[in-house]
Computed example of a mutant assay.
Amino acid sequence: MQTTLTTRATDRSPAFVVVTAMTPLVLGLMAYAADETSGLARAVLLALFSSGAAWGLAALVIGFLAPGRRLAIIAGVGGLIGATVVYYALIVFVSRRWQGGWLEDGTPADVMGLWSIARALGFWLVVSVVAGAVFGVLGDAVARASDRVGAAAAGVAWGLAAASGIHDLLVLARWVGWNGQATDIAVSAAMTIALATLVVAVLRRRRGPRGSGGMLALAATVSSGVGTAAWWLVESVRTAV
């Protein structure tokens, strides 16, 4: 059994290196690209590259491919931190959206704009550390734990990743009217849930022999509820910051 696990870890090592190296660049660049588009194209890019699901699932895949749990955590955290830094570096040095504002007394608001970006960067770096560690551990469990524990880890990963989409759909349900913006949000939310389902299904299949479907369903149900509540808190804190 140990030989089999070692062989599987070795087989995944090249993919682990590539995915870990590319995650910061791809997520950071594409999340920035989503900000520069609008309409349905923006909704799609947000779901695939700039949603909580997309970033959490990236760390999940890194954890799944990692040779061990410790490296899964380090690489998962590092990948999301790197992506966050790339994204905000592009805002500061490329789009420079913090420039051009003016205070009521006529003085430039550039310093306040930079301070706002710095606060957002700090907030999302903290989130990246937590999410990278959690999803890294879950990815490692999906790959190497027993069938029952692996199924539970897959269910938790799905629930936490899909929670951002579920949260957005619940927010939309409270809207009085419906317009193009609501449609884009609904499309993006549905895609994040579909993305979570696809990635977890693929990782479960790559794991090999599997079972405990009931455990997976139970873990997914509970974690999606907890994750959705957590997103309400994240959104509240982010707004305050």
Results as ranks from 00 to 15, higher is better:
Thr6Lys: 12
Thr6Asn: 13
Ala9Tyr: 09
Ser13Ile: 03
Ala15Trp: 12
Val18Gly: 01
Thr20Asp: 01
Thr20Ser: 14
Met22Ala: 15
Thr23Ile: 03
Pro24Ile: 04
Gly28Pro: 01
Leu29Trp: 03
Ala33Leu: 14
Ala41Leu: 15
Leu46Trp: 13
Phe49Ala: 08
Ala53Ile: 07
Trp55Ser: 06
Leu60Asn: 01
Phe64Ala: 08
Leu65Glu: 04
Ala66Phe: 14
Ile74Glu: 12
Gly79Ile: 11
Leu80Ser: 01
Ile81Cys: 07
Ile81Val: 15
Tyr88Ile: 10
Ala89Pro: 01
Phe93Gly: 00
Arg97Trp: 09
Glu104Pro: 00
Glu104Tyr: 01
Ala109Asp: 12
Val111Phe: 12
Met112Gln: 13
Leu114Lys: 10
Arg119Asn: 06
Ala120Met: 15
Phe123Pro: 05
Val126Ser: 09
Val127Gly: 00
Val127Asp: 00
Val142Trp: 08
Arg144Glu: 12
Ser146Ile: 07
Asp147Arg: 14
Gly150Cys: 03
Ala152Lys: 04
Ala162Met: 11
Ala163Glu: 06
Ile166Leu: 13
Asp168Leu: 12
Gly180Glu: 08
Gln181Thr: 14
Met191Trp: 04
Ala194Arg: 04
Ala196Arg: 01
Val199Phe: 03
Val199Cys: 03
Arg206Asn: 09
Ser212His: 13
Gly214Ala: 12
Met215Arg: 13
Leu216Glu: 12
Ser224Gln: 08
Val226Cys: 05
Thr228Glu: 03
Val234Pro: 00
Glu235Phe: 11
Glu235Trp: 08
